[in-house]
């Protein structure tokens, strides 16, 4: 059901990239505001200035990192959907691991392996929680038990089946 709430695949990349950027920008802004406030020299105006400076310098960088992660993840996810012809939790886990690996590509092979493992485990956790919630919430959508299966309730099978009364067969109205 939630697959219909998202964009179709190639456009999903742009959407996820933007969503990740917005999340990083706003979340990073709040985080850096607190951090800059705490780390600034004493005095209220200085603290506010430090907070503002931290937001201005750091939150776009955090947002950019988020956007790169989201865009890369979505790209690999869509590629996997295209080649495997199915959408399942393994897509997300594989693309999380691959994203972690690719984005650490300039730090050497051990760093790539570590980032890939972290990314895969993180995405596996997210997918596992999603599946768990689906299982829990599936109980309330269970069908009611079927009614009685007594064939006598269906009527006499020897009489012809008609719509309406048999006297009005020539009339349509």
């Amino acid at each position: 059901m939630e697959e219909y709430a998202r964009e179709p695949c190639p456009y999903r990349i742009v959407d996820d990239c933007g969503g990740a950027f917005a999340m990083g920008c706003i979340g990073g802004g709040v985080f850096q505001a607190i951090k800059g406030f705490r780390n600034a020299p004493s005095g209220m105006s200085r603290r506010l200035i430090g907070s503002m400076t931290a937001i201005k310098t750091r939150s776009p960088v955090i947002a950019g990192n988020f956007a790169v992660w989201g865009g890369m993840f979505s790209t690999i996810d869509c590629t996997l959907v295209h080649f495997r012809k199915k959408e399942d939790p393994w897509n997300s886990i594989i693309s999380g691991a691959a994203t972690g690996g690719i984005l650490a590509a300039r730090n050497g092979v051990p760093a790539m392996a570590g980032s890939a493992i972290i990314g895969g485990v993180l995405l596996a956790l997210i997918e596992g929680v999603g599946i768990l919630f689906t299982r829990i919430s599936a109980d309330q959508f269970r069908n009611p038990p079927p009614p009685t299966e007594d064939p006598a309730a269906l009527g006499d099978p020897s009489s012809n089946f008609t719509f309406g009364t048999p006297t009005s067969q020539k009339q349509y109205q």
């Binding site: 456009y11 742009v14 959407d15 917005a22 865009g71």
Partner: peptide, 11 residues
């Protein structure tokens, strides 16, 4: 439309 716009401008 916001997320698509943001993603487009980032890209």
């Amino acid at each position: 439309l916001a997320f698509s716009q943001i993603g487009t401008s980032v890209m």
